[in-house]
Simulated scan of single mutants.
Amino acid sequence: MNTASPFKYEHIRVEHRGAISWLILNRPESANALSNELLDEFSDALQRLVSEGGPVIGIRGDGRGFSAGYDIGQVGKVGTYGSLVADPIADHARLRRNVDRYVAMWDHPKPIIAAVHGYCLAGATQMCVYADITVVTNDAKIGEPTIPMGGGYIAPLWVPLVGPKRAKEMAFVAGNSIDGKTAVEWGWANHSVPSDQLIDCVEGLAERIALTPPDVLRIKKLSINRAAEAMGFRSAGAAVAEMDALLHLAPSVLDMKQKLADLGLKEAIKLYRSAPTTPLTPITKTPE
């Protein structure tokens, strides 16, 4: 049964459906871009769901995709939002705060499943990395930002899941992406399913998980997290804000931000768009 949550938000929705409480990114007109306002609501809902809702939390996006990543209108401006040029300390604090929102998923007492359809790009992939289980559609597009003005903020968080070589391949090519089946092959996701089965599959998985008592689930999650942290998972996440804040002051990145301001998002993307490297194919060269 679908039960609406008593707490209301503008940029997300919370729906309780049996064993699972869905936290739904609800900015479909903006490709579910992760604005500061949406992320504030996300963090609030996540905290409320510690003591409310079902034994399992699901995260998905409304509309055509999961999320296109951080709202470029807020994070891509030149010297305005967060005083990116003048105040690297404020920039670092902002970047760290975003990661801390996802660390709260990692530390949450309930299992969290990310259900990805359509597209899951840039900062949205960080959210999925910190989910306990990720289920994607076969045709999902999962990838890096097209405009390469970030440094070590996205791909380093992929390393514990896919390894350093695959993370580097993703990071080195602007806008690089993989599909759902490849995401499972690489270890980024658990399962890849047909688009029309995504919600039913995740809700079925939640029902099976919910057969285990909540206190047992909590300790199972904690013990597995500790094993992952012994391998460096938490420390890797703690370093990404520093790397990205450092690069935001580089002349080449400031130039890209200026191009974005001058040309607009669509025209700026054209400067860097290329085919993904998976599967790897040669570039067709124009005869001389």
Rank of each mutant, 00 (worst) to 15 (best):
Y153V: 07
L263K: 12
I178H: 02
R208S: 12
G175M: 10
A241N: 01
I154L: 14
D139H: 11
G264V: 10
E203V: 12
G152Y: 00
T137Y: 04
V184T: 06
L246D: 01
L249K: 13
W188S: 00
E229R: 03
P164S: 14
L263C: 05
P145L: 06
A171G: 14
D200C: 08
S223M: 13
L222Q: 09
Y153E: 01
A239E: 06
L217R: 14
W188N: 00
E242R: 11
Q258T: 09
G232N: 10
F172P: 01
K221N: 06
V193M: 10
G143A: 13
L249D: 13
R208K: 15
K220I: 13
V162C: 05
I224T: 11
P145C: 05
K259F: 00
V202H: 11
A171T: 03
I147S: 05
A183N: 06
H248D: 04
D200Q: 15
Q258D: 07
L265F: 13
K257C: 09
E203G: 08
G187F: 12
P194D: 11
D179N: 15
P214Q: 07
A239S: 09
G237R: 01
A174P: 14
I209E: 01
D215E: 13
P194T: 08
C201H: 15
P148V: 01
P156V: 03
L161K: 08
T146D: 03
A239C: 04
D179E: 14
M170E: 05
L217W: 13
M231Y: 04
V162E: 01
E207R: 13
R166A: 12
E144C: 12
P160I: 03
K257G: 08
R166Y: 15
H191S: 10
Q258L: 12
H248R: 15
S195A: 14
A239K: 03
A155E: 07
L217V: 07
E229L: 00
L265W: 10
A228L: 07
A245Y: 04
P156Q: 07
G175D: 04
D215A: 08
G232H: 10
L157S: 04
A140T: 03
A261H: 14
D255N: 07
V184R: 09
P251G: 02
M231G: 01
G163V: 08
K259C: 03
S235I: 06
L260K: 02
N138C: 09
D215L: 05
G150F: 07
P251N: 01
A171R: 13
L246Y: 08
K266T: 10
I224N: 03
R226K: 14
M243G: 03
G150L: 11
V136I: 05
V253W: 03
M243Q: 12
K168Y: 15
K168P: 02
P160Q: 04
A167W: 02
I219Q: 14
G180T: 10
N176A: 11
T182C: 07
L222N: 01
P194F: 06
G163K: 02
K165S: 13
N176F: 09
T212L: 12
I224M: 06
G152Q: 00
K165L: 15
F172S: 12
L161Y: 13
D255T: 09
R208V: 09
I178N: 02
I178K: 00
V240A: 00
K221T: 06
L247C: 06
S223C: 07
E207G: 10
